[in-house]
Computed example of a mutant assay.
Amino acid sequence: MSGERRAELAANLEVVRERIARACDAAGRDPADLTLIAVTKFFPASDVDLLADLGITAIGENRDQEVSAKLLEVRDRDRLDVHFIGQVQSKKAGSVVGYADVVQSVDRPKLVTALDRAAGTAGKVTDVLVQVNLDEASGRGGVAPSGAQGLSDLVAATDHLRLRGVMAVAPLGVDPAPAFARLQELARAIREEHAGAGWVSAGMSGDLEAAVAHGATHLRVGSAILGTRQSHR
């Protein structure tokens, strides 16, 4: 079964990488400048191991309890960067900081304080992205665009967090290009104030081309690589 699963993942990865290459060609960009994050939530550690063998260097997870247990089963944790992409409860900050190399979903001052304290206790500096809500009526996580600069300034002023840029999810059911263009403008403004904040995490399985066209540096791709949300053991 593992051989069949490896072949399935390899074929899916090839398709996704070809899509990225075509999108970069259309945008005049170098695919080497983009990081592909395989979103492995709901999938087992065995899939994570296979993806790492196939060249994936970063995974995305969004459930603290799930990823905490999963990483104990991953064969070689050190070869992967773990990006936490889900909403973080302040009381879970210590747990998330313990395993996450990057927290992409920083969206409120209270969480900044909690993560900074947790990283300090752990004796580390944690990379973070400010999550921007591009669909303010949806109830999704993320700071309003008007508050992104201020929250970025707050992160940059901490001792144990490193501001790396912004993250967003495009609104559902509409052309994602205008939303990603808006995120690109916000990212540019934040980068002018904070030189190290050059990451733009945007684009998923259905809209990665639009994200590449509007400056995304990190793509979070789940179903196009791993298939439907079911366990493969």
Rank of each mutant, 00 (worst) to 15 (best):
V143K: 07
A213W: 03
G94Y: 09
E209K: 08
P171Q: 01
V102F: 01
L54P: 01
A224Y: 04
V132Y: 13
A21N: 04
P145K: 03
G147C: 07
A170Q: 09
Q65F: 08
T217C: 01
T217H: 01
A216V: 02
L54R: 10
I59R: 09
E18Y: 04
A189V: 14
V88G: 00
L134S: 00
R22V: 11
D127T: 06
T228P: 03
K70T: 09
A7P: 00
D49A: 01
T158S: 07
I37G: 00
E193H: 15
T113G: 06
A211C: 01
A157C: 12
L154K: 14
D159A: 14
D207N: 05
A100W: 04
V212P: 07
E185T: 15
E185L: 14
G165C: 02
P176F: 12
D135R: 09
D175K: 05
E14R: 10
F42N: 10
G141Y: 02
G203E: 08
A157Y: 02
A216S: 11
I20F: 11
A119N: 08
S231A: 14
A119D: 06
F43A: 12
E209N: 04
L80F: 12
G86N: 05
G227W: 07
G3P: 03
L226K: 10
R17E: 14
R19E: 10
R182F: 03
A213Q: 14
G196I: 05
V166T: 12
D135F: 11
G142Q: 10
Q131D: 02
Q87L: 14
A179I: 07
A213C: 02
H214T: 15
R162E: 00
G60Q: 03
V106G: 00
L226N: 09
V200C: 08
M204L: 12
Q184H: 15
V67M: 11
A197T: 08
T158P: 02
E66D: 09
H83F: 15
T158M: 00
R117T: 13
G123E: 06
V96F: 01
D135W: 11
R63H: 12
V166Y: 06
P44T: 08
D78W: 05
S105Q: 07
D81I: 06
D64C: 15
A177Q: 13
A211T: 05
V212K: 01
G165E: 07
T228D: 15
